[in-house]
Computed example of a mutant assay.
Amino acid sequence: MDSTNDITVGQVVKSRAGRDEGRIFLILDIVDHQHVLVVDGDLRKLDNPKKKKIKHLIVYNTVLPELKYKLDNKIKINNAYVRKLLEPFNKSF
Rank of each mutant, 00 (worst) to 15 (best):
F93R: 00
P88T: 07
L43R: 15
T8G: 05
I75Y: 12
E66K: 12
R44S: 08
K45P: 03
T8D: 09
I77P: 01
L86E: 05
G18K: 08
K50N: 08
Q11V: 03
I75R: 12
K45N: 08
T62K: 15
R44K: 15
D47A: 15
K52S: 10
S92L: 10
V59Y: 00
M1I: 07
R19G: 14
I27P: 01
L28P: 03
P65Q: 10
L67C: 05
L86P: 04
V39N: 03
N5C: 00
I54L: 12
V9C: 04
K84F: 09
L67F: 11
M1L: 08
N61M: 06
D47N: 15
V39D: 01
P65W: 09
V13K: 00
D40C: 07
R16T: 14
N73E: 11
N61G: 15
N90T: 10
F25D: 01
I58H: 11
K74M: 09
I27M: 06
D29C: 07
V13D: 00
K53I: 12
K51L: 01
N90F: 00
Y60Q: 13
I27T: 07
L85W: 04
H56V: 06
V38G: 02
D40S: 07
N73I: 08
K51F: 00
V38E: 02
I24D: 02
P88Y: 06
I24F: 04
E87W: 03
P65I: 09
L67P: 01
T62L: 01
I75M: 13
V82G: 05
S3M: 06
L46D: 04
V59C: 13
D47F: 08
I54N: 01
P49S: 12
L26K: 04
F25N: 05
I7R: 02
K74P: 02
H35R: 15
D47T: 13
I7K: 04
L86W: 02
L43I: 12
D20S: 12
I75H: 09
D32K: 11
G10L: 05
P65H: 11
K53W: 08
K68A: 15
H33Q: 14
I24N: 03
D32Y: 08
D29P: 03
L64W: 06
D6K: 14
A17F: 10
K53D: 12
L71N: 04
Y81G: 01
K14W: 03
E66A: 04
K55D: 10
N48S: 15
G10Q: 03
E66I: 08
K74L: 13
N5M: 00
V12G: 03
